[in-house]
């Protein structure tokens, strides 16, 4: 039995017909929508490689059933940059070498965007490490990841202050 959903993905409205209610958001993105930037690491919500934002909150797309997302807004790594201008978090990961093999990187970046939006961690390294603990990096580029999140937080805070002024 099929069912239809409408949702916004990276700013574009999409109408999607699902033939199985169990299709995950991750499989929808990768296999149906040609958005393979979101990675499948463990497929059980334990590694964070598939992290995306749903309605602004970070979730594991491998544990999110697409059918429940009617009306939702989804942002993936492909939707972060504005044209050629990288998002501040992407820029910070680039500058701080926040990766080696790169496979966990889209999930790390989306998780960091979510973390910064949550606003609890600030630029406190310990809180960032706690907040990023749902994203495993087997290469252990954790120094670069933590520094990138700190740096991006500072930049985005400064930018927000500037915009407000």
């Amino acid at each position: 039995m099929s069912l239809s959903i409408s949702l916004s993905i990276n700013g574009a409205a999409r109408d999607i017909v699902l033939d199985d209610v169990r299709v995950t958001l991750l499989d929808l993105l990768r296999e149906r929508l040609a958005l393979p930037g979101t990675k499948k690491g463990c497929d059980r919500g334990q590694c964070g490689a598939c992290t995306v934002l749903v309605n602004g909150q970070r979730v594991n797309s491998c544990l999110t059933l697409a059918a429940t997302l009617d009306g939702a807004t989804v942002t993936t790594i492909e939707g972060l940059a504005q044209g050629d201008r990288l998002h501040p978090v992407q820029q910070a990961f680039l500058e701080h070498d926040g990766f080696q093999c790169g496979y966990c990187t889209p999930g790390q970046i989306m998780s960091a965007v979510g973390l910064i939006a949550e606003g609890h961690a600030g630029d406190d390294a310990d809180r960032i490490r706690e907040g990023m603990s749902g994203n495993l990096c087997r290469c252990s580029a954790y120094r670069g990841i933590t520094e990138a999140v700190q740096d991006a937080t500072r930049r985005m805070t400064a930018q927000a202050a500037e915009d407000a002024a």
Binding site: G45, G48, T51, R58, V59, T64, S111, G134, N135
Partner: peptide, 9 residues
């Protein structure tokens, strides 16, 4: 509970 991604859902 799991990670923040899990806590959100």
């Amino acid at each position: 509970v799991g990670s923040i991604q899990i806590q959100n859902a």
